[in-house]
Design a protein around this nucleic acid. Structure first.
Lengths: 345, 345
DNA sequence: TATTAACACGAAAACGGTTTCGTATACAGG
DNA sequence: CCTGTATACGAAACCGTTTTCGTGTTAATA
C-alpha cells in the first residue's frame, strides 16, 4: 500500500527544504532550473498530489458547495442538481449534497454540519416543514457569517439573498388562458395543501386567468391533495360530480394519476377533458397520452443558481467590505404540448 | 457580519492558552471547574463551533464519503443515493456526489479530485464507457493508496473491493419462468447494447429459463436498443412480425414505451401480451396498466454499500496492517406484480 | 579589492485545531 | 523543613500546505 506522499517526504528525500519543493512544483522563478527539474521529476514519479484539506485550511476556501434539497428521488430536484453539478464541476467545485426530507430539523442539522468550514456557499430549496413553520433563523445565521446563499424554487422573502425561481404564476395564467381560448369552460385545479409557495403561486395564476375571462370560480373544481399523495383521495366522484372539461395539476404525478382515472371512466383525452401538469418529467413524457406539461427548466435553474453562487464566492473573496446586492432571477417556464390537450394556437 | 470565532480568539479574550480552551471545551478532567465554566459559557455565547477542515487535517479523516454515479436524473441511482445518504448521515458522514455522465474521463477526473484528501472512501457505479473500455486503473490506484471503495450495481471482477449487487440473472430467470408457467411461449427480451454487465446478466437469466423449459431461442424475439433511447428504433414492426405473447425489458422505460406501442396496435395487456420491466420506478407505478416490475431495492443497496464502506473506513483506521478481506453482498430483487401480467401463482 | 545586486534557497509563521509532555503552585506527609 | 504528589495550566509539536522574508553565495561593477 503506497501511502500518499507529501511535500515533506519529497524534501527529505531530495535534501532540500519544504518551501523549495512547494515553490519548485509551482514552477516559481525563485528556484533554479535544475532543482526544479529534479523536484518535478521526483514528484511525477511518485505521483505527488497536494492535499486538498491542507490547501483548504490555508486558503480558507474549500471549493465545495453545499446543496440542500427536500428530496432526491424527485425528477425536478435531480434536474436542478444536474445543472448545479455541471456548472460547479466546470468551475472546479465539488458538490456536497444533503437531503432535508422535507424536515425542518434535518435542514438545520445539515446546514450546521456544512457551515463549519466544509463549504464555501449554499444552494438550497426549503423543506416543506420549514416553509410551514416560517422559521428561517438557521439561514439568517449562515448569511450573517458571510457565507453566500442561493435559494431556488422554494424560496422566502424573509431572507435577503440571491434567488432563482420560475414565473409560476404567469405560467399557470398562460396555461389556463390557452385552455379558455380553446373553449374550455370548466377548468379544474388540483393542487397540494397550502404551505408550499410554488403551489400557491400557481393557484393565483389560475384564479387570475379565470377572473380576467369572466369565468366563475367554482370551489368544487378545486381539489387540494396531501403532498405525499399516498392515499387515494382523488376519487371518481370528482369527475362524475363536476363535469370538468380541463384539469390543471400542480405536478405531474397528480396529472397522470388523474388522467388514468378519467380514462377508466371512459372520458376521451383531450376531447372530453384536457390535462396539463407542472414539472415536465419522465412521467409526462411516457404517459399515454403524452401529458402537456409546464417545463420548469430545472437544469437551467441549477446552472443559474450555481453561477450566482460561485460569482458571490469568488467576488466576495476579493472585495471584503462592499455593499451586498442580491438578485432574484426568474427563469421562464415553457409549455410542452403533447396529446393531453387540444392543439393550441 | 460576525466572523467565525476560533479557539485563538477565545484564548486571547479570556487570557488563557489555546490548549486550555481546547481541553475545557471537551470537558477534560485536566482543567479546573471554574475555568471550564467560564470558557464554555463564553464559547456558547459566541456560538463557537470547531472548524471541520482543521479537524480533518489533524485527524486525517474528513467524515466525507464520495459517491460517483453515471447519472443523477435516474430513478434507480437516486434511490440508491438516498439509502447511502441516510445511512451516512446517521453515522455523521457527509456525502459528496459526482456524476460521471457515463464518461470514462469524467469518472477519472472526479475520482482524482476527491481522492486527494477530500473523502475517506468511495461508493460508485461504473460509467458505461468505463465498462466498455475495461480500464480500471483509476480504481486500482485509489485502492492501492488504501482508500476504501465499494462498487454497486455496475461492478467489475477486475477490482478487488467490496461490492453490492442484485441477483440480476436469477431474477430474470424467475420472471421468465413465471411467464412460461402462465402459458406464454413467445417471450421477447428487450435489452441495451452489450457492454452493461447488468443487462448481460439479465439476458443470461432469460436464456437459461428458456433452455431449461425447452423453449427455442428465437433471435427475432431479442431486441437490442441503444441505452440512450432517443430514437424510435422500437417499431411497430416488431409486434407485427413476431406474434409475441410476453415481453421482458431490462428497464422500465423500454417497457413502458413498448407497452404504449402495443396498446396503440390494439393488443390487450396482459391478455395478448404481458409486460415486465426491471427497475421498479415511478414509471412502472403510474403506467396504465401498472407495469409488473423487478424491484431492485435501490435504497437497501445504498444502505448496504454505505454500511460496508463506513465499516471499512473505521475499522481500517484502527488496524493499520491486517489482511484485507472483501465481500460481495447480493440483495435479492423482488417482483412487484401489477396489471401488465396475468396473475402468477 | 570592496560593494552590490541577482540568484537560489531555507526558516518560520500561518491556517485551526488536538495532544503530549513539562512545570509552577499548593498542600500533605514524614 | 524537605520531599512527594496532585492539580491546573501552558508550550510546543503536529497535520500539509503557502508565502513572506531573511541570508549565504556568486558574479558583476566601481
Amino acid at each position: 500500500m503506497k501511502r500518499k506522499i507529501t511535500l515533506k517526504h519529497i524534501a527529505r528525500e531530495l535534501d532540500v527544504s519544504i518551501s523549495t519543493v512547494s515553490k519548485a512544483l509551482k514552477n516559481s522563478e525563485e528556484i533554479g532550473q535544475d532543482t526544479k527539474d529534479k523536484i518535478q521529476a521526483f514528484a511525477k514519479l511518485y505521483n505527488y498530489k497536494p492535499n486538498n484539506i491542507a490547501i483548504s485550511l490555508k486558503n480558507k476556501r474549500t471549493r465545495n458547495i453545499g446543496v440542500i434539497i427536500p428530496d432526491i428521488v424527485h425528477h425536478f430536484f435531480t434536474t436542478v442538481f444536474r445543472g448545479i453539478e455541471q456548472y460547479a464541476n466546470a468551475k472546479g467545485y465539488n458538490v456536497i449534497i444533503c437531503v432535508s426530507d422535507e424536515s425542518f430539523d434535518k435542514e438545520v442539522i445539515n446546514m450546521e454540519m456544512l457551515a463549519n468550514g466544509s463549504i464555501d456557499g449554499f444552494i438550497m430549496a426549503l423543506a416543506g416543514e420549514t416553509q410551514q413553520k416560517n422559521d428561517y433563523s438557521h439561514l439568517k445565521e449562515v448569511t450573517e457569517q458571510g457565507i453566500p446563499l442561493v435559494l431556488f424554487d422554494r424560496v422566502t422573502d424573509e431572507i435577503q439573498c440571491d434567488k432563482v425561481i420560475i414565473n409560476d404564476e404567469s405560467a399557470a395564467y398562460q396555461v389556463v388562458e390557452k385552455l379558455i381560448r380553446a373553449g374550455r369552460k370548466r377548468i379544474a385545479l388540483i393542487t397540494t395543501e397550502g404551505y408550499l409557495n410554488v403551489s400557491a403561486k400557481r393557484a393565483e395564476g389560475y384564479y387570475k386567468a379565470l377572473k380576467e375571462h369572466n369565468l366563475p370560480i367554482d370551489k368544487k373544481l378545486i381539489l387540494q391533495l396531501p403532498y405525499q399523495q399516498q392515499d387515494e383521495t382523488m376519487s371518481n366522484k370528482f369527475f362524475e360530480d363536476t363535469n370538468v372539461d380541463a384539469v390543471l395539476c400542480v405536478n405531474e404525478i397528480f396529472a397522470v394519476k388523474c388522467m388514468g382515472i378519467a380514462q377508466n371512466l371512459g372520458y376521451r383525452i383531450p376531447e372530453d377533458i384536457a390535462f396539463v401538469g407542472f414539472t415536465d418529467g419522465i412521467l409526462s413524457h411516457y404517459a399515454t397520452p403524452g401529458l402537456t406539461s409546464v417545463d420548469q427548466h430545472g437544469e437551467i435553474m441549477g446552472e443559474t443558481a450555481a453561477q450566482m453562487l460561485i460569482e458571490k464566492i469568488e467576488h466576495h473573496h476579493e472585495n471584503e467590505e462592499e455593499e451586498e446586492v442580491f438578485e432574484t432571477k426568474i427563469v421562464a417556464a415553457t409549455l410542452i404540448e403533447r396529446d393531453s390537450t387540444p392543439k393550441f394556437l
